[in-house]
Design a protein around this nucleic acid. Structure first.
Lengths: 350, 350
DNA sequence: CTGAAAGCGCTAACAT
DNA sequence: ATGTTAGCGCTTTCAG
């Protein structure tokens, strides 16, 4: 139905290659011809078929961005930042949602592969080996997962989890819970590893709950179990779970932070709108989105080098954390972290 | 780099058309050959190039979905529903964000056009005429806007706004504010029209503030102006603005609903997490997403007929609305609406 | 059941 | 400056 390059050629009495040039290299065509061709094109409503063009040039000027769950408020800032960064270079971003499902994720990579010049894989749920396999079909940048050999952007959640646990043990909490994220999440493993270390260092005992779906519902679902376990403070895999957990805790009659302290991770907008305002580890989602796009599009310059970016996190102390049950240590050494300056991106080329 | 159909053909000693058949019509090829071809393909890591295939078949099995702002929590449920509906039919959804910008929106339609079989335009900011123009290049389904001649699915916000204003005037409010949405929003116009009608019917005076960006920030920004105007109740274009407005109002020292009542539209998850819990008009976003996908993919069956779906809305009364300043009318006839049953989708083929 | 040939809409040398 | 010729990777008649 839509006009093709041949229609325009016929109508304007030139060869199709001239029409092609009019659109992809206007300076190579006589101004008069150009005007005529353009007029015909306009009149026929002709637009170059980008898919056909891509087939031969090998470039689509699109980039894919796959997220685990588009309903998680963590992602929109990342997506927005990636979009504006991409737009500056005349690229478009196509977003797809894997629904926390590794199989869907793989399927989406395959579907996107030839429609884009590369894919940003955010918080992937696939195995490392599958990701490496797919990376042979389409340039990939992995966000929120460390994979050697592939360009990656990660938030330093290990550092953030450490900050959070330090804050808690500093408040006198000796029995701390960790509400884990989904299976397959690199971030969740990192948090767990680092939290265990920090807990030991702070003389606290760490109890892990999970894995769980990384949603409000997932958080609410473990509330009872958390309460029964007797921990006096909890670090959750993300803010959504922390918020769900608080709801669940309230539903069980527990008060936050009087009875139990809760810390989240991400610092989504919502975390300062709920009551009590959530203490949380802020992750630089927008910076990650920008960095990921940069890496993908820089790929032309220096092949053979895989970039890694690790972005600093920051503890934001609000109202969901308070003194632990132990009356002997009410001091709060956690505010040192809170006073940290703007998060800094540490870029390292290898 | 990736293997092509020719590589597989050479490797397995058959013609490329046989390889093609092995993937697109397996039953037409001898089981033995098929196995051999499949083995070679596997071994070479061959995947049919979907873009090349689409060039000739005219079908991509992808559908585009453009939203005005992916950070608006109204959209994720719509997107998720569209995705699961599409996946059931082996289609993939590519989401793009127009950033509330008509020019970006147009650009995105053009970029997506040949990579998808059709586009869902959600809350478009473009003009009707431009949308009609674009619809000649790619099948379009318009969500949250009425355009005759194109398939559309709308939420009946007029009805919802009426419910909200009735609720407010029933509570005794005589001076009601309307915080409008962005310019170019059909929904905003509908709300405005219907609210004016309902206000007149309820003997209330309606003051319109705006247009405004449909964000939390946009809501907060008009708080002072709203307060100065002396209205005792406000209906906001959406929940995000209502929430921002409440924040702004609190910042100015006003209490909600004691000093001023606020009603939102959408019933996003957030609206029951904030304090006070938001009274709002629930819109069936998920149903809209499903209906839109159905319309787009049904397009094969009956051409020449344009479908329209209008989805019912429902008033959800929570804690952000209370009696008006007039002591003579504290009765609350608004709960009739609150008792309404599940929202019902009314489908009408024209 | 398989091969040969044509061509989707476009770009990219190469001529002229 | 413009036309000619190939051909991107694939599907689809049409023969055989």
């Amino acid at each position: 139905m839509p006009a093709t390059i041949r229609d325009v050629a016929r109508e304007s009495g030139v060869h199709i290659s001239t029409v092609s040039r009019t659109f992809s290299a206007p300076h190579l065509v006589n101004p008069d011809t150009r005007t005529r061709v353009l007029a015909c094109a306009e009149q026929l409503g002709y637009r170059p078929n980008r898919a056909a063009r891509a087939l031969i040039t090998g470039r689509t000027f699109n980039v894919g961005l796959i997220v685990a769950d588009i309903a998680n408020p963590f992602f929109p800032p990342l997506i927005k930042a990636a979009e504006s960064q991409a737009r500056q270079r005349d690229y478009h971003i196509f977003v797809a949602d894997s629904n926390e499902d590794a199989a869907v994720e793989e399927d989406l990579v395959r579907a996107l592969a030839k429609q884009v010049d590369g894919i940003l894989l955010c918080s992937p749920r696939m195995s490392n080996s599958l990701i490496e396999l797919l990376s042979r079909d389409v340039p990939l940048v992995v966000v929120n997962r460390q994979i050697t050999g592939l360009p990656t952007v990660v938030m330093d959640v290990a550092q953030g989890a450490g900050l959070a646990i330090d804050h808690l043990s500093g408040l006198g909490h000796r029995r701390i819970g960790l509400v884990a994220g989904p299976r397959g999440s690199w971030t969740s493993k990192e948090i767990r590893r680092s939290a265990a270390l920090a807990a030991r260092a702070g003389g606290a005992e760490l109890t892990v709950f999970g894995p769980n779906p990384p949603t409000e519902h997932g958080g609410a679902a473990v509330a009872e179990q958390v309460l029964r376990s007797g921990v006096s403070a909890v670090l959750a895999y993300n803010d959504l779970m922390a918020i769900g957990l608080i709801e669940g805790l309230h539903a069980q009659g527990a008060r936050v932070p009087a009875d139990i302290s809760v810390v989240g991770i991400d610092d989504i907008a919502l975390s300062r709108l709920i009551h009590p305002k959530l203490t949380t580890v802020a992750t630089p989602a927008a910076a990650a989105g920008r960095a990921a796009v940069d890496m993908l599009l820089a790929h032309g310059d220096d092949r053979r080098t895989t970039a890694h970016a690790s972005l600093q996190t920051e503890l934001v102390i609000r109202d969901s954390t308070g003194p632990g049950p132990d009356p002997h240590s009410h001091a709060d050494p956690g505010n040192a972290a809170a006073a940290a300056p703007e998060a800094v991106a540490s870029y390292a080329k290898e």
